[in-house]
Design a protein around this nucleic acid. Structure first.
Lengths: 350, 350
DNA sequence: CTGAAAGCGCTAACAT
DNA sequence: ATGTTAGCGCTTTCAG
């Protein structure tokens, strides 16, 4: 920079102004400085710049599973929007590990991101998010919400989604409907208690989906059989095992609901391994419309989330807050779509 | 920081030393300063620190398609390795757009990444990579290579992979084998000219795979029918159309080779749409073992790349170079695996 | 082992 | 419109 100034025959300040595009500089000197910079091979030090201005034009995104197509589409939505506004993304993956999340959020704060888009692992552990906020950096949540903080969030109406799905299954004649979700059994009682259609704050999507499942069943006058509610965890082997167990009980369910695409794929594998025919012997209805969902045999009927839109909206909210801190926090629920394909059979009356 | 120093009753320098873990500080004062920092809620400004030390502990990764599971597994491999070394990743997606790539590489340089892992869009446009290098930041390539620069790279032996695949197809009785790749037809001539088994520098994976295809055919004494070589592009609709066209010619191929998973999925869709039976009427052999590959009907026979390993190795190379700039550049080719499933039929002699 | 002072590369007031 | 002077928050000599 000092070389550039010398070469252009101006002061350092002027050179900086010309290159940085601020303050008042004549068009002529701008040109001179530009060519001087070119010759010297000058590259601005964004770090130094950011340290002064406090602006890094970088947004952090913290997601829980980068191999999940849902999140990669969210990411693309966010990426497209922020890029249009001259921002870049810093990405971190937590693998559903709360301590990794804390660490990554701190790292991002250290890198002075201007805001964070987070899919929080634990709705009750939010110290790191509170810190971020109090450092003046907005946070918007995707997919999940949080208990203690008032934050923008964008996701879907999980209760309604599975409620509708269950209703559909019931209208097709199913009475024994199993659900494989990422919810530990001890939360089932809590889910059963939820009567209202308003989601409890801090409810995870898995929980919401479980509640919707219970509500759908009860609406049809059916009880919830705890034996049909299993935890699929976060790993495919655990999920496969859960599905296998569920399909091996004496009075096997005629339909299975899975609450994310990893669980869906695992359930399908379990069905195959058990030698069961889908949908003749067991129907399958999954969450998230992965690209393979229409190609497997049978093509899977799914609840589709507008993942790209979720990312895009989250980014818009965040950018808006960065531009203007005020405004009350809002939570947006985008609509899901039930895409009927071939994995749900109609059952005649017993 | 100044508050911390005051609260701890030491100078700023000492406080900084205690917190930053450099220089000489007594264990006692370290403790005092630590608690003071805790109380004040001190967060170090990594930017300021990086500006001095030149170390950001951040590595940039520039990939061409974040929705491709191959890259997301690469990313995970890289992510795991760098995290173990206390580094973080900055991620950018180029969508196969060379100008986006240049921009993102520049942005990352601006953010003072310590090194770059890049999947370059264009083997001939490498100014931005040369700049990075001359700024003292190592670059390692994944999946693809580059013409003008001597860089570490990690990928697979693409020629051998498709060569073997074609040989396998031929041993199963196939004589008319089509290939759908991301190579424009005008490069076919170039591919046909390649005799040696050594890949040309700057050869893209698509080209290498095409060359291997040609070599496999010739080894069996078969010619390359240009009508069986089509460009699938980067988008699913284009790919589907290409597959549809290829399967609609008079003397339809009995087997199809696809050079990435998007092409595979598109080809499968085209086969379905055309009402063809796979593998009875047309066999399919794809690149990359996506999670759905074993679940579709029929399960797809694939050439599997060690994606996680590729990312991990690339990260290791980069870290090694960051630690010690020297050493001649090396290009590593990890082995591919042909996973036989159900999408390739055996054809009796005509 | 600790303190004082200098400076990283840039921007932001303030002059001129 | 341009130059001068501070200073961002930290690390790093260099004294003591």
């Amino acid at each position: 920079m000092i070389d550039v100034a010398r070469k252009a025959g101006v002061s350092r300040a002027t050179a900086a102004r010309a290159l940085g595009g601020y303050g008042r500089v004549s068009a002529a000197t701008i040109a001179v400085v530009r060519t001087a910079a070119e010759e010297v091979g000058y590259r601005p030090n964004e770090l130094a710049r950011s340290m002064i201005t406090g602006r890094t034009r970088t947004i952090g995104v913290v997601i829980s599973d980068i191999e999940n197509q849902f999140f990669t589409r969210v990411l693309r939505g966010a990426s497209d929007v922020v890029r249009d506004h001259g921002y870049d993304l810093l990405l971190a993956n937590t693998d559903e590990d709360a301590v990794a999340e804390r660490q990554m959020v701190r790292v991002m704060n250290g890198k002075q991101v201007e805001g964070l888009i987070v899919c929080p692992v634990d709705p009750d552990e939010v110290d790191h998010l509170a810190e971020t906020l109090s450092a003046g950096r907005p946070v918007v949540l995707i997919d999940r919400t949080v208990t203690a903080l008032q934050l923008d969030s964008v996701g879907v109406d999980n209760r309604r989604a599975t409620h509708d799905a269950v209703s559909r299954l019931i209208s097709r004649g199913h009475r024994r409907i199993g659900i494989i979700s990422g919810v530990q059994p001890r939360f089932l009682a809590r889910a059963l208690r939820q009567e209202s259609s308003e989601p409890a704050p801090g409810e995870t999507p898995s929980e919401g989906r479980l509640v919707g499942y219970c509500q759908g069943l009860r609406e049809a006058g059916l009880g919830v059989d705890e034996a049909l509610v299993v935890d699929g965890g976060f790993h495919s082997d655990q999920a496969r095992q859960a599905a296998r167990d569920l399909l091996s009980i004496p009075d096997r369910p005629t339909a299975l609901l899975t609450t994310d695409s990893l669980l869906t794929i695992s359930a399908l594998q379990a069905i195959r391994n058990l030698g069961l025919k889908c949908p003749q012997e067991v129907s399958l209805l999954g969450f998230d419309d992965a690209d393979w969902a229409s190609l497997v045999e049978p093509p899977i009927t799914v609840i589709s989330q507008p993942a790209y839109e979720i990312g895009a909206r989250a980014a818009e909210f965040l950018l808006a807050r960065i531009a203007d801190g005020g405004a009350a926090s809002q939570t947006v629920q985008l609509p899901t779509t039930l895409i009927e394909r071939g994995s749900v059979a109609t059952i005649g009356p017993a």
